[in-house]
Nucleic acid binder design. Sequence first.
DNA 1: AGTTAGCACTCACACAGAGAGAGTGCTAAC
DNA 2: GTTAGCACTCTCTCTGTGTGAGTGCTAACT
Lengths: 342, 342
Amino acid sequence: MSDITKRKQEILATIIERYIATGEPVGSKAICADMNNAVSSATIRNDMADLVELGLLEQPHTSAGRIPSQAGYRYYVDNLMTTYEIGIDEQERIKIWLQSFSGEPDKLLEKAGSILAELTNCVAVSSSPSDSEAFIKRIELVPLSEHTAMIVLLATSGILRSSVVRSDSAINVDIAEVFYNICQTYFNGRNVSDISLSFIQTLVASLGDKVFVMSPFLCAISDLCEAVKTTEIHLQSPNNILNHTELSEDAFRLMDFLHRSTPLENMLSSQKKTLNVVIGSENSYRELRNSTTIFSKYSVGDRESGSIGIIGPTRLDYARLIPSIKYLAGIIGTMLTETLDE
Amino acid sequence: MSDITKRKQEILATIIERYIATGEPVGSKAICADMNNAVSSATIRNDMADLVELGLLEQPHTSAGRIPSQAGYRYYVDNLMTTYEIGIDEQERIKIWLQSFSGEPDKLLEKAGSILAELTNCVAVSSSPSDSEAFIKRIELVPLSEHTAMIVLLATSGILRSSVVRSDSAINVDIAEVFYNICQTYFNGRNVSDISLSFIQTLVASLGDKVFVMSPFLCAISDLCEAVKTTEIHLQSPNNILNHTELSEDAFRLMDFLHRSTPLENMLSSQKKTLNVVIGSENSYRELRNSTTIFSKYSVGDRESGSIGIIGPTRLDYARLIPSIKYLAGIIGTMLTETLDE
DNA sequence: AGTTAGCACTCACACAGAGAGAGTGCTAAC
DNA sequence: GTTAGCACTCTCTCTGTGTGAGTGCTAACT
């Protein structure tokens, strides 16, 4: 692959950039003009034929211009692209805009996602920080009425989860005390992965006559631990899919795909690198075979605990989008880490 | 309008029901068969011509069958339709399914919405109970870390809202006490609409040296009161829009419309009746000119405080959907009222 | 050997005409 | 008021033609 002449690389880059901008197949004449007539269109045609041979370009039909193949985009992203960083003032604006949500990871990610969707005109997807190694930092019981209370669980990963519990018996100071005692003894400081159903069951067995009052609360805690471990997926502007005509055939299937969290989750958890640009059929899900996904992990503390990125067509302005996504992932990580430090 | 002969009504109903089932224009022969050849196709043609004249039917083109006009649907819904109640066992299943979410109105509505979307194959929309006449029932401060705390506000409308606050000074018992004192004196039992920015400002002025510590909390309370008043819109399965080919032209605009809460909110708040069936261009929003919206209000206590319903094409199985929506609205109301009573 | 001009060729697209089929509107008889 | 019969209308599909963009190939040139 690396034995492609400089000129062929230039031609490839020109075709890709022009195609990204216009969405139309690029002919030899147009390239010729873009290259200031350095060589004739016939020469370019010869080179293009070679690039098709190599699988980097495609022809929609015999007498059309060329469009990049998925391998072509891959070569471009890996070897040819020069990235454009996002402007400093824009960076500053985003930072200020996000600052106010730094206390609540989910809200922060939703906001970041909607900024990203706006910026890229694509669907933005983010996963909340999930960390099965997280510990329970704190559990609080917030009485709401005689028979209902809210249980709030804060994990060391910075994730905050809450749920409302109903109890048949009145929730009074005594019960709260029992609750906090149990938390202190059995939950606080414990790894969320330890709180299995069987753990709760053995715990319940040891409670004696408090079991009936306590069990709904303990079940809630178990659920909340589960929720802390579970990656929450945030989807922003799914309708942006419809902006891209090249995806209109897949639109229906894609929409359906986007609205199911499990595959998205699997997709994200299978990504190993910090920045993942997955083009077309490189994606393991068939629904994404005509799409590109660009995701960057963000780090909370020293752990890469979540991702943010986009799903769009393969025809994407990679050179601009990749830096934007990197920037957002970076700033999310920083903010979440700062909040965690206290 | 009421001077339409019995037979014409029967023809109209047959056309509408057949068109709802098949989506294809209905010809005189087909109706003839559906009516057991009680009259000849020629007679039906004569009657159909009259129904077109009256604006209840339309012809896509001269030599096609007839389809219902929007006015035709209206006439059908108002005068001809016989509704099909949802099955008892299905009712029971839904009830059990929803029960577990009765403590959290927003989750309950989301769940109900997703059931409705599944049931109807349409987009489900619901608004959380909003009530500007609600009072503050309770405010709790939940310390999370040295500098952050969660503020939980429960309103008499059953709505629960929370937000995380950062404070520059450490959040200790003293501060909590001051906080609860302020709540007791100024907030608890007060109408959420009273908590304006100017109210907070005068309150802040009277705080003396506690002002710097308290102001982020007070601002949060103000925001939460605002959030209690604000109708929260839940959208379920927006991609169901794409299931309906007759809306494919509007799909893009509709999707966009659905993802902005404000118009949806306006639409819902402008509906006066308990059950609102708004067909096609009866909708005040242009985006909905080819859609039907069916919404039912649900009552919490004795106030109609929110809505649930669907947005779909005008070609809808009104006879089945209307009872389903009524049923869901009813059960939501019952559940929310029960939770509130305690 | 690499580059270029020239030209025939290919293919998608847009438009037009023909044939088929569904369903109508009208007329005249019942 | 109802019905049978029939010409008529309009959509849809298929086919054919013309156009234009862009190619691939060949032969000449540097």
